[in-house]
Simulated scan of single mutants.
Amino acid sequence: MTEPSPDFDLIRQIHTVLVLHFLEGLKQSEIAAKLNLSTSKVNRLIAQGRRLGMVQIDIKSPFQRLSDIEQNLVASTALESARVTPTVSGNADTTLHQVGRAAANLLLETLRDGDVIAITGGKAVSAVVENLSPEHPLDVTVVPLTGGVQGKFYTDVNHLVTRMAERLGGKPILIHAPLFAENRAQRDMLTGMAPIKQVFDLARTANVALTGIGSVEPRASSYYDLNPVPEADRKMLVGMGIAAEFMAHLIGINGQVADYERNQRLVALHPHDTATCRTVIGVAAGAHKARPLQAVLNGKLLNSLVVDEETAAAVLAQMKGSEHAA
């Protein structure tokens, strides 16, 4: 049934209500009091204005360029979602803080009561933890994905697990094992011990995983905080085509876990162990993370990424260059 054409007075009344509601921000009850109408009448006038096409909502963001980059990242990779924050030129700490805050918000949107969240250590994950501010406690369990390295707060995964559980209102499960064993046999012995095996078995069932993406090329890379290596070995890693550290594993530019001795000594879950997670969030900041990110994305090891604008643009440029080279 076609709605009859409204008369001029009705159109004027609808227009007045729409202006008060959508432009001046008045509640329907406030409009009703102001115009001496019932709230139900105001609701009907707004609905009629919508039907007549009198309401056109145009939402613009001052950061539309960031939304465009996010869409390009999702379209160009296996990612299901991406969040890009502004890069603060000349201030890496502030850039990392902003990325951490965005990742913290994404994590809070993702988590549900009863979830298990598994995390790595690292500066980026630490930035996420410090930005967590839930509106109410969450009944979650936080577990590590790797053994730990003591000495710095961000390499001690147990510290970050405890801190995250405190901020979320959840429960921490800690692991009492080093990140690196002396050899593969010792690694197998450690991961076979019941207390460590139980933690990693729980981590394999995680609903959400949160991990940083490390670089291996810069001398100051935080990867070398985990296990210092001689300068010659660092150059050898780069020469071998190793481009990233993910869950403490060295990853080639093709996205595959490298066949390298260090990986054989890790007391950590394998990157593919997170494949059953509902959400695997990667967090990174800084242009030096562009190549590591490309490697991790090539391996389809993430389904969600939080990164700064400059780094995201560099990743997209590298991917475009790789396509042209192929």
Rank of each mutant, 00 (worst) to 15 (best):
R51M: 13
A185C: 04
D259N: 15
A118C: 01
K60Y: 14
T191A: 08
T39G: 11
T274S: 11
P271L: 08
K123A: 12
T16C: 09
N183A: 01
T94H: 15
V128H: 07
E182Q: 06
V315D: 03
L73C: 09
D273A: 07
R219K: 15
T211F: 10
T311H: 05
L107I: 05
M54G: 06
T2V: 04
A181T: 05
L52T: 03
D93K: 14
N207S: 15
M193R: 11
S222W: 03
A295M: 09
E309C: 03
P172K: 04
F246A: 07
S38Y: 05
V280C: 08
P144T: 06
I253H: 08
K152N: 12
T191L: 14
I59T: 08
L66F: 04
V42F: 05
G212N: 00
P292C: 08
E80K: 08
P218Y: 06
R65P: 04
A244H: 08
A78D: 13
V19T: 14
R167L: 10
V17A: 04
A75C: 00
G122D: 04
R167S: 05
E24V: 06
R234P: 04
A268H: 02
I173S: 07
L210H: 12
Y223C: 12
G90R: 02
V199A: 06
E130R: 15
D93L: 13
L297N: 02
D139C: 06
T2A: 00
G241R: 07
I175C: 06
D188K: 03
P4C: 05
M247H: 00
D68L: 06
G192R: 10
T39C: 08
P218T: 09
R265A: 00
H21E: 10
S76P: 03
A295E: 11
N183D: 09
S29Y: 13
